[in-house]
């Protein structure tokens, strides 16, 4: 060990210096490469856009003509309905499947495993076709007691499972299998101590799942679920194969009559992109909601929550005091 001067600080500077030294004014590094790359990219983008916009085969007037046409708008509505209903089936079903899969009950766990295995093992396109052709397998549906020929009601399969219901079942049941894995990952991500703390307070396993585990798992589940929703919006276009009257069905029907293939496909693209953008924005708000207790703004709003609680308790707006 070398014996140098005593470490520490200059005795005159104990307690920090009295005035702040001059701020650093350095000349920043010049990124010439970035400027050149940016210029090249802007030029290419401009050239591409120009050639596309000026291409006579795009037929802008046709796009405008069909973009807000009633027929197309009704298709957009069906697409949205399919997206949200299928995601609802997927989210609820997925949560059930995930809880079943993690259950100690071997029957529930196996049922969930087989379900996920089947629905992830076959293409959603094929599943749509299967549901669309359900009537081939069972032409009539019966409600009654099996094996004793007691029938309370029966109906034509094609009337119970119309194209919309077939499309919805195919998309929703398929989504449930994928959502199950997302929810399972979310549940596993919650620390074990949380379940133990809840158990030690006398909370039942079900209550613990609902009040403690799932709300925390949501924080992990929401981003990929948003992604799934965006993906679902576009997957719905596959139901055109059973003519479920969604946006894509309408577009294909139209261009098979008038052969305006490219403009009509662009109409579909515009609508899909528009709703994808909306969903992306919506996802941000959901993430903020389920991230409560983890954000940075929380400290500031504690006072607001205290006020709200006081207001509920006394029934008086504390602002008047």
């Amino acid at each position: 060990m070398s014996k140098g001067p005593q470490p520490g600080i200059d005795s005159q500077n104990v307690g920090g210096s009295s005035s702040r030294p001059e701020a650093i004014k350095a000349i920043p590094i010049r990124h010439w490469g970035r400027w050149i790359a940016a210029a090249a990219i802007i030029f290419l983008a401009f050239a591409l856009t120009y050639s596309f916009v000026r291409n006579p085969h795009v037929e802008w007037p046709i796009i405008w003509h069909y973009l807000f046409k009633g027929l197309i708008l009704r298709g957009v509505l069906v697409t949205l309905e399919l997206t949200f209903l299928a995601m609802a089936i997927g989210a609820v079903g997925g949560t059930l499947l995930a809880v079943m899969r993690l259950s100690k009950n071997p029957v529930l766990a196996s049922v969930s495993w087989v379900y996920i295995w089947f629905f992830r093992g076959t293409p959603v396109y094929v599943q749509i076709l299967l549901w669309g052709n359900f009537a081939i397998l069972y032409p009539r549906l019966f409600l009654g007691l099996p094996f004793v020929n007691v029938v309370f009601a029966s109906a034509d399969s094609n009337r119970v499972i119309g194209v919309f219901v077939a499309a919805l079942l195919a998309l929703g049941l398929n989504e449930a299998a994928y959502a199950a894995e997302l929810v399972r990952a979310g549940i596993i991500s919650v620390e074990r101590g949380q379940a133990e703390a809840a158990a030690s307070l006398g909370m039942s396993p079900g209550l613990t799942m609902r009040r403690i585990i799932l709300p925390q798992a949501m924080r992990v589940i929401i981003p990929p679920m948003g992604n799934e929703t965006i993906s679902m919006l576009k997957t719905t276009s596959l139901v055109a194969v059973i003519a479920a009257l969604d946006l894509m069905t309408r577009v294909t029907n139209l261009y098979s009559q008038n052969f305006k293939i490219f403009p009509l496909l662009l109409v579909a693209c515009i609508w899909y992109m528009f709703f994808t953008t909306l969903l992306t924005i919506g996802q941000r708000y959901l993430e903020a909601y389920f991230g409560k207790g983890f954000g940075e703004k929380e400290a500031a709003s504690a006072e607001k929550r205290a006020m709200k609680r006081l207001e509920r308790k006394t029934g008086v707006d504390p602002g008047v005091f």
Partner: peptide, 8 residues
């Protein structure tokens, strides 16, 4: 501690 982080 194992407090519930999503609750005040």
């Amino acid at each position: 501690f194992n407090l519930f982080p999503h609750m005040t």
